[in-house]
Write a protein that binds this DNA or RNA. Structure first.
Length: 272
DNA sequence: GGGATTGTTTAAAT
DNA sequence: GATTTAAACAATCC
């Protein structure tokens, strides 16, 4: 379940190791995971940098092309040696001129990759519709986007056109920190509370990046290592446990089709 | 072997 | 018409 902090961790780890290297080979084992472009265009290109936008991993090449990867639930991208056996569900392998290789694997195959030009990337509807990076804008700006909407706040946090990169983990953690019930309609949240939510979201995302992300089951960074932010969760996945703030039992409900774990004592639904 | 899993898209509803 | 919600979908593992 790589969200913003997890993809950011992978991007930073990969960038530090592959910047300036040349792609020698590109082997696509599962053609269906490539949603745009062709991998034949990749060999020969030098890697300029590896970055992140929303939950997308972006590899910029000196040919003007971008390799874009979305890990969805179970995708992994890591750097390895050709001597290592490839995992069962390996979809794309890039051989580099230092002898190492970048591996994209995804057991569930929900993840995908795309080869884009700058123009085609900008023309990709999903990419073009992405909202601001939560750590690149002010909390006031984030709050302003959500203010006055009738949708439930949990749905807005998960809406990538609203805020980019937030998934179920960080949405639940931010709502708990700001003491807001996940089903509260944004229009019923005071501007002070909304600002607090956005501030907490930024704080938690920054902490999670420092912790190398959260590993629930599948997530690993570019070196195959787990994150440790899961040890700091207050509510995510902790239904039945005691609220760290008031000791009341945490409850899981469905909001916008997603499991939303919260404290019914600290996070009260003011208006249904 | 069926249910659970998630982010995104698409269709339906308000 | 615009906003919001529910359902569908990808495919595998436990």
């Amino acid at each position: 379940m790589p969200e913003l902090p997890e993809v950011e961790t992978i991007a930073r780890g990969l960038d530090a190791q592959v910047q300036g290297l040349r792609v020698m080979t590109a082997c696509l084992y599962t053609p269906s995971v490539l949603h745009a472009g062709t991998v034949d265009t990749l060999p020969g290109a030098r890697i300029l940098q590896v970055t992140r936008r929303a939950k997308l991993l972006l590899m910029a090449l000196d040919t003007g092309l971008y390799l874009v990867i979305h890990l969805k639930m179970t995708g992994r991208v890591w750097l390895g040696k050709p001597t290592q056996a490839l995992p069962k569900h390996t979809h794309l392998v890039l051989g580099l001129d230092n002898g190492e290789q970048i591996v994209f694997e995804d057991a569930r195959r929900f993840g995908y990759c795309r080869v884009e030009t700058q123009a085609s990337l900008a023309a990709w509807p999903f990419y073009a519709s992405l909202g601001p990076e939560p750590l690149a804008v002010s909390a006031q700006e984030l709050a302003r986007i959500m203010a006055g909407k009738r949708a439930r706040i949990k749905a807005l946090l998960l809406d990538q056109t609203c805020v980019a990169g937030v998934g179920n983990i960080y949405a639940d953690e931010a709502l708990f920190a700001a003491e807001i019930h996940p089903a509260t309609q944004a229009i019923h949240i005071s501007s002070e509370q909304l600002l607090r939510l956005c501030t907490e979201l930024q704080r938690i995302l920054a902490l999670a990046i420092k912790a190398g992300g959260s590993t629930i089951s599948d997530y690993r960074n570019a070196y195959g290592r787990s994150g440790i932010f899961q040890n700091s969760f207050a509510v995510y996945g902790k239904k039945g446990a005691a609220c760290p703030r008031c000791s009341h039992t945490l409850v899981a409900i469905q909001v916008a089709g997603r499991t939303s774990t919260h404290c019914p004592h600290c996070q009260v639904l003011e208006v249904a």
